[in-house]
Simulated scan of single mutants.
Amino acid sequence: MSRYCLITGASSGLGRELAIQYAREGWQVIAVARSVNALNELHQEYSTIHAFPLDLTNTELFISAVNHLAEQIPALDLVILNAGSCDYVDANHLPLDIFERTMTLNFQAQVAAVKLLLPLLQKSEQGTVAIVSSLAHLFPFTKAQAYGASKAALSYFADSLRVDLTDSGIRVCLIEPGFVDTPLTQKNDFKMPFLLQVSDAAGRIRKGLDAQQQRIRFPKRLVFSLHLLNLLPYSLRCKVAAGMRQP
C-alpha cells in the first residue's frame, strides 16, 4: 500500500533533498513549491514525486488545491512543512514589509497548512505533521529580528499544537536544524558554525521521523553551544550577542 508524504518548499535545498530521499524509499511524494519548472524537473527524475505548484501565502488557492488533492489520494501519512525565507533587517529602520513577508510565510502559512491538511492526516492510521523551525530562535543573533521571531513563534506553535492533538492520533514533530548548506544560507556573508551538507541534514530528519521523535535538533555541537550561551547571566549573554554583530 502506498504511503503519501507532502513536503513544502520542495523546489530547492532541504525540501528538495527530503523529497528525493523519501521517493527513493518508495513513498509517493507531493512536492509543494511556487517554482513549476523546478517541481517538473523533480517529477521527470522521480516518477513518484508529484509536482504540486502552490503559493502557500494565498489561502484561497491553498484551500482549492487541498480540496483537489483530497480527491486524488486516500490520506496523508506525513506532512513536512519546510517552506520558509530569511531576510536580515536593519534595526535602525526595521522595515515593516520584511517583517510582514517573513511572518506571513514562515508562520501564518504554516498554521494555515496545518489547518487545511489535518483532515487528510486524520485519514491515515498514523499521520505525522513535521514542522521545520530553526535553532536560530534560541539566541539573539544580529539582524535576525524578523527571522528569529518567526521561528520562535513557529516552535511554540508546534509544541502547543502537540499538546492539544495528543489524543487525536496525529503526531507532531518539531524540527530545529542549525546551518544547512542550501541556496538560502548561501546568501549569508558570515561564518556559519557546524555547517551541514543538505543530504546529511535530510538524513537526520528522516531518521528522527522514523524513530517518532517529538523534536529533532541538530547538529548537537551547535545545540550544546547555544545551551551554554543561554546559561550565562542575562547581562553577560547580551554582551556576547552584541559582540557577534555584523558591520
Score class of each variant (00 low, 15 high):
S155Q: 01
S155Y: 01
Y156L: 14
Y156D: 08
Y156I: 13
F157C: 02
F157I: 02
F157E: 05
A158R: 03
D159Y: 00
D159G: 01
D159C: 07
D159I: 01
S160W: 00
L161T: 06
L161F: 02
R162P: 04
R162E: 11
V163K: 09
V163T: 12
V163M: 13
D164A: 02
D164N: 12
L165V: 07
L165R: 01
L165S: 02
L165T: 01
T166L: 12
D167E: 15
D167L: 15
S168R: 11
G169N: 06
G169D: 06
G169V: 10
G169L: 09
I170E: 12
I170W: 07
I170R: 01
R171C: 05
R171N: 14
R171L: 06
V172K: 09
C173N: 09
L174W: 04
L174Q: 12
I175A: 01
I175R: 02
I175Y: 00
I175E: 00
E176Q: 15
E176G: 03
E176V: 00
P177A: 11
P177D: 11
P177N: 11
P177H: 07
G178N: 11
G178C: 11
F179H: 11
V180F: 10
V180G: 07
V180L: 09
D181P: 04
D181T: 10
D181I: 10
T182R: 07
T182M: 00
T182N: 08
T182W: 10
T182S: 05
T182V: 05
P183A: 04
L184A: 14
L184F: 01
T185G: 10
T185P: 02
T185C: 09
Q186G: 04
Q186W: 02
K187P: 01
N188G: 09
N188L: 04
N188M: 08
D189K: 15
D189N: 15
D189I: 14
F190W: 14
F190I: 15
F190Y: 15
F190R: 13
